[in-house]
Computed example of a mutant assay.
Amino acid sequence: MILALAMVLDAALGEPEWLWSRIKHPAVLLGQAVDALDTRLNDGSTRRAKGIATTLLLAGGAWCLGWLIAVIPDYGLLEMLGAAILLAQRSLVDHVRAVADALRENLPAGRRAVARIVGRDTAEMTEAEVARAAIESGAENLSDGVIAPAFWFVLGGLPAMLAYKAVSTADSMIGYRTERHAEFGWAAARLDDVLNWVPARLTALLMLTVHGALRHWHRVPNDARQHRSPNAGWPEAAIAPLLGVALAGPRSYEGTVTDFPWVNPTGRRDAGAGDIEAACGILWATWAGALALVMLAAALPTLLWFAAASLAL
């Protein structure tokens, strides 16, 4: 029940500016730790070994911190607050919806809004490219910002959830295949792929299930494999047919256009602000489905006990 309360609290409050303008968000502290270790250790001829040690240190340290919080005798209050802080449903939807609002004003405003949530070049984006980028970001971050943290909480409580967030943060900062991080960030990138393998597929399955659209599932694995990421393609491949749009496709990074394959290639390629709004609805519906599963899992032991007691009478 701790996780269910955390999910509801995150959905209700998101990331209140009044709080995080006064103290540092845990994600910021994790980022500072990654940056410090990158600056100190990422050199020499043993970068991969140092990167492995860095990733294990971050994950292990986060696990220990989560364990210390979880064992405090406070009836799970701090564990619930910690889990709520590490979830990102409300902030995710707010950021994605902001792109739709900006795009309705004008294209330059839409480009500026989407630049806050994606890493690709945005200066020359068309309206459809802005919309697709926002939808793709929403689908991917639903998996690694909401479903994956919740999944790891179910398996290992706050320690596992915090360790996952440490690895995810490290991957987002040093997991890129640049000259500087190809070796040092290798472990963070690979471990992040492993930790997100099940949650990404669970997100896609849940997304289609809550919308009564499992008929699309047979297309999801093939479309997902076209994606450059082993995990991000799954939620994108699920949300694309629900919206009737094609996602992914060509995009530019650091001035270089790469011709990535399309996800749901038969879908419309003229996505707009309305499609972003529809995507936000899908994100909330999927979150609600996940919450229902968490509550059912929490109630299952009690239901089984009542069932056994009834049979014994």
Results as ranks from 00 to 15, higher is better:
Thr266Arg: 12
Leu81Thr: 07
Ala182Leu: 12
Ala307Phe: 13
Leu78Tyr: 09
Glu236Lys: 01
Ala109Tyr: 01
Pro73Ala: 12
Leu311Arg: 15
Leu86Val: 00
Arg219Ala: 14
Met161Ser: 10
Trp197Met: 12
Glu277Asp: 15
Ala12Phe: 13
Trp234Gln: 11
Ala100Gly: 10
Tyr253His: 11
Met1Arg: 09
Ala187Val: 00
Ala271Ile: 04
Ala33Phe: 00
Trp152Asp: 02
Pro159His: 09
Gly156His: 06
Ala6Glu: 04
Thr126Leu: 05
Ile69Thr: 12
Ile52Phe: 05
Arg268Trp: 08
Leu5His: 11
Glu140Ser: 01
His95Val: 00
Gly274Cys: 08
Ala248Gly: 07
Trp18Ile: 12
Ala123Cys: 05
Leu86Ile: 01
Met1Glu: 08
Pro159Ala: 09
Arg90Thr: 08
Leu9Asp: 09
Tyr253Glu: 05
Pro149Asn: 07
Asn106Asp: 15
Leu29Val: 05
Ala240Lys: 12
Ile72Ser: 01
Met207Val: 09
Met173Phe: 00
Gly14Arg: 02
Leu81Glu: 07
Leu3Tyr: 06
Arg47Tyr: 05
Arg116Leu: 15
Ile23Tyr: 03
Ile174Leu: 03
Gln89Phe: 14
Val220Gln: 08
Ile276Asp: 05
Val114Leu: 11
Val146Phe: 12
Ile282Pro: 02
Thr178Gly: 15
Met295Ile: 13
Asp10Val: 08
Cys64Asn: 02
Val71Asn: 07
Leu103Gln: 06
Pro241Phe: 11
Val198Phe: 13
Leu56Pro: 02
Trp284Ala: 11
Ala200Met: 06
Glu105His: 10
